[in-house]
């Protein structure tokens, strides 16, 4: 594979990753020894709120979100989002929780400054790095 084709692939990967990350709210999970880490990827520069309803069998433990932007009421966690790109919170329990969420969006895309969120770029870096590593290994 020549350098030109490799570069084209990289640029395409970056554009794809940026597009996905900008599309909207995304919830993913990771696990470690009875703990469930819930990762919320938020729209760029979002101002609004998210309510997460935790199902029975899971207990809320903590979050990386600023404490004065979080409120827990029973099984519902309320997050105020003021430009943050991600929220991660930790649950205790087994398996994948069936969380139902509610989004309160106050700001439209047209009001979001381009520099407000580094998240798509970070995602692009990760994805393109992976892509490049694969290409590099294949070309050897």
């Amino acid at each position: 594979m020549n350098r030109m084709r490799q570069s084209l692939l990289i640029i395409t990967a970056i554009m794809l990753c940026t597009g996905i990350a900008s599309a909207g709210l995304d919830r993913t999970f990771s696990y470690d020894d009875g703990l469930v880490f819930v990762h919320l990827s938020l729209p760029e520069g979002m101002i609004g709120g998210i309510s997460e309803e935790i199902p029975p069998g899971f207990t809320y433990l903590k979050t990386t979100h600023p404490s004065d932007q979080v409120e827990i009421l029973g099984r519902t966690i309320h997050f105020a989002v003021i430009g943050e790109d991600t929220i991660t919170y930790t649950l205790q329990g087994q398996g994948e929780p069936a969380i139902s969420g509610r989004l309160l969006l106050l700001s439209g895309d047209e009001e979001i400054p381009a520099e407000a969120s580094p998240a798509p770029i970070l995602g692009a870096i990760g994805a393109s790095s992976l892509c490049l590593l694969m290409l590099w290994r294949r070309s050897r």
């Binding site: 609004g48 709120g49 600023p66 309320h78 105020a80 430009g83 309160l104 520099e115 580094p118």
Partner: peptide, 21 residues
């Protein structure tokens, strides 16, 4: 991306949390 903006952040957060509740 966003630095500390003092009171307005807290007030806005309180308003959003109140609306969610």
């Amino acid at each position: 991306a966003l630095g500390s903006v003092g009171d307005s952040r807290i007030l806005l957060a309180e308003g959003i949390l109140g609306e969610l509740k």
